[in-house]
């Protein structure tokens, strides 16, 4: 088993290349649907579902599809998956279907999905691609969910629809608040990520020096 490779894929999707905070892709649904935590998580999971399956199918067909028509073929596969999830939601979870509105079909043009198809799935084996899609989706879900929780709490005083506090700062659920909160999240996430990276680098550097000194002593 190649655990380090899988671990690498997972940390890549969730942290290092987090699509929402690090790459700033798929911004439209992130801004529009994080006004409530439930919608944000729902959208994240829908993206995860589609990303995992689209990566799987595209990886499966990567040797069949000629290079010249790969983009239309990918779009066809992704659009089919989006239509399927749209039917499923309309039938079984109409609440989410209604609150997603126009952003549900727009998953087709979400840059994350086509980006992972182009950047990963068409060069890698099936299992790796599925895993990559899954963890990128989870990165999306966590980022959007976190923003949803914060915005809903500050804007409506509730947590997943449960009223916790009797205050509301409507700015945070409004369009303007969406931009503000997203900007702050990107800043904080990147600052934290850089700080951790620096620490790890320093540690590695120290280890490296130690190794060198041991070698020299020998």
């Amino acid at each position: 088993m190649n655990w380090s490779k899988y671990k690498n894929i997972a940390t890549n999707g969730v942290l290092k290349n987090n699509p929402i905070f690090r790459l700033v892709l798929g911004t439209c649904p992130t801004l529009a649907l994080t006004g409530s935590a439930l919608n944000a998580f729902g959208m994240g999971l829908a993206v995860t579902f589609i990303l995992t399956l689209s990566n799987t199918f595209i990886s499966l067909l990567r040797k069949v599809i000629p290079d010249e028509v790969r983009i239309p073929a990918y779009v066809l596969i992704i659009a089919t998956l989006v239509t399927i999830i749209r039917m499923l939601l309309e039938k079984y979870i109409p609440v989410l279907f209604e609150s997603f509105g126009v952003y549900l079909p727009l998953i087709v043009v979400n840059c994350i999905i086509l980006g992972r198809a182009e950047g990963f799935a068409n060069k890698n084996p099936i299992f790796d691609s599925a895993l990559d899609g899954f963890f990128t989706g989870i990165g999306c879900t966590l980022a959007m969910g976190l923003m949803g929780i914060v915005r809903e709490f500050l804007g409506a005083g509730s947590f997943f629809g449960m009223q916790l506090m009797d205050f509301r700062i409507e700015f945070f659920t409004s369009a303007a608040g969406a931009f503000f909160v997203y900007g702050m999240f990107i800043a904080i996430f990147n600052a934290a990520y850089k700080a951790i990276e620096n620490k790890i680098n320093k540690k590695n550097f120290a280890l490296h020096l130690e190794e060198l000194s041991i070698k020299e002593n020998n």
């Binding site: 303007a176 608040g177 931009f179 997203y182 900007g183 990107i186 600052a191």
Partner: peptide, 17 residues
């Protein structure tokens, strides 16, 4: 850490208001 996307978002926020 505010340079780039974050400050652009804040500018967009003020425009949205």
């Amino acid at each position: 850490s505010l340079k780039g996307f974050p400050i652009t978002m804040v500018a967009a926020c003020i425009m949205a208001m």
